Structures are given as structure tokens and as C-alpha cells.
Amino acid sequence: MHIDLSGKNALVTASTAGIGLAIAVGLARAGAHVVINGRSADTVKQVVDKLHQQLHGASVEGVAGDLSTADGAKAVVDAVPSVDILVNNAGIFGLRPFFDIDDAEWERYFQTNVMSGVRLARHYMRGMMERNWGRVVFISSESGLNIPVDMVQYGFTKTAQLSIARGLAKVAAGTGVTVNSVLPGPTLSDGFKDMVREQAEREGKSYEQIGNEFVKAHRGSSIIQRIASTEEVANMVVYVCSAQASATTGASLRVDGGVVDTI
């Protein structure tokens, strides 16, 4: 299967590192013009410059904007008025006991993980539907189905994304626009590395070693019994954004290594 996204414009939110960056690279390699997004203009520029050097001939630009706010989302859509592919990857996560999560923290997670994608989809989907072609992908998580007891605030937002994506797929019914969710499991992302950095230094272990131990200890239902790479998640997203995936919409597509124990 040859995926060709030449002539398509793609915006990948929070794409200066981790899963978002892997998705951006995958889309660019498939021929799409890719817009890199992050909160820091300097970081965005550094990533764009690096990709221009690494991906010879790739079409990449950047736009800075904090998508946890309405003003940040407006700044992004003002700079990038139209796209064919929208990948809502922006999100935060962190371990916290339920009784320590105050109202402000709940609101922060909701605005960052949920409303960021809502605001962008509300803007970009209109044009997609008028052109009768488009792809919207929400990067959810297996935690949206298997709510982690130590990250209830995170799991709730990932479940919300599944509902929104399914609803938006119905909004686009009968058009060439598809809306799907992709659900990664434990992934060797920069966020994961930051979370276990002290442990890695203290125990003298690689991030991959710690990731694999985490999967076996805390995600025992995993079938692959290891942590996934960001590229493995990106491969699913690139496919969902392709013309070949035209009959896949309203779906929750797991790249969780079989963690969610269901058929």
C-alpha cells in the first residue's frame, strides 16, 4: 500500500516532540504539507528547521499557540485558516490521587485535552465538508476505556474525546470527511521519559527498560508485553489520514498492544 498525501495540508497539534512529532514526520514523508504546532515559537522554529534538514524536500511550516485557551486556538486558525487534515494531539497527563485534584486541575485538563480539539474541529471541519474531503483524528488513549485510578482526570478527558469524535463523524455524514479516534497504549514518548527520568538516572536503566517494566507491572493485559514506539502510533494515524481509509469513520482505533481486554 502506497500512501500519497501530496496536495494535502495537515495541522498536527503539540507536534514538537513525542507522538505528535512522529505523526508530523509520517505525514510529511507521505507528501503532505505539515504545520508543526507548539506553545513556544522558538521551539516550533527549531523543530521546523530540523525537519527541513532531515526530510529533504518535505514541506513543513510552524505555528505557535497555546491550545488550552480560546485565544491560543484563535491565533492558530488565524495563522492557518484552512487544512485538509487535523490531528488533535495536544494533551497533558500526570499522576495524581483523586482527592488531591481540585476544580482548577479538572478545568485545566478539560480545556487542554478536550476543548482544544473542539475549537479546532469547529473551525476546520466546515471547509472540509464544503470541499467534500477531510480527515480529523483525535489522539485519545486506552486510558479512555481503562480509566487509571491514579489519573482519573486524564482518563475522563480521553473518554470525552471518543464521544466527541463519534459525534463529529455523524455531523460529517455523507461527505468525504472522516473523524476517528486513535487510542495509544503505553508509549515511549517524551512525556513518558520526563515522568520516569529520575528513576532512569537513579537505577541506571534505559527508558525502554523502564517502559517495558511498567507495562508488565501495571498493564498486565498487554499482549505485546512491551512499550510501543511513537512511530508505531504514527503509522496508524497516517493510514487513517489517507485516501485508503475512506470507509473508516466514527471509529476508535486502538494502538495499545492489546491492553484493553476486549474483542
Rank of each mutant, 00 (worst) to 15 (best):
S181Q: 09
D84I: 08
E232V: 01
V34G: 04
I23H: 09
G26N: 07
L253C: 11
E232D: 11
V255P: 07
Y124Q: 08
D100F: 13
N113P: 03
V152K: 07
L145V: 12
N132L: 06
P81I: 13
T187L: 01
W133R: 06
G65L: 03
R226L: 02
V137E: 03
V240T: 09
S59D: 14
Q209F: 01
T159S: 13
L145T: 11
L120T: 10
W106C: 04
T230C: 12
C241P: 00
I92W: 00
H33R: 14
L11E: 03
L5C: 04
Y154A: 07
I36N: 08
H52G: 14
R197P: 04
E142D: 15
S15H: 09
A200D: 02
G134I: 00
F214D: 07
N180G: 05
V255F: 04
Q244L: 14
P97D: 08
L95H: 15
A251T: 04
G185Y: 02
G167V: 06
N89K: 04
L11S: 05
V179K: 08
A243M: 13
K158Y: 01
F98A: 15
F110W: 13
V182P: 07
T159V: 11
A75Y: 09
A75K: 15
R219P: 10
V255T: 09
G91K: 01
M115L: 15
Q244W: 11
V179D: 00
H218L: 10
T69Q: 09
G176L: 01
D4E: 09
S206N: 00
V114R: 00
G174Y: 01
N146C: 08
V196L: 02
V35Y: 12
Q244A: 15
F192I: 07
Y207T: 00
S116P: 12
G174H: 02
K216T: 05
T175V: 03
I101E: 04
G191N: 07
E142S: 13
W133M: 02
A165Y: 02
V171I: 13
E232F: 01
I3R: 11
G62V: 00
G144E: 02
D78H: 12
S222N: 05
S206M: 00
K8D: 02
V182S: 08
G167R: 10
F98S: 15
E198V: 12
Q111S: 14
V47C: 07
Y154P: 00
A70Y: 13
V238I: 10
N88A: 03
V87A: 10
T262S: 15
V12D: 08
R108I: 09
S140Y: 02
A64L: 08
R126G: 11
V25T: 11
E142N: 14
V87R: 08
G20P: 00
W106L: 08
I227Y: 00
K170G: 09
E198A: 14
E208Q: 03
V255Y: 04
K193S: 05
A169E: 04
A251D: 08
M1P: 08
L21M: 07
P97M: 10
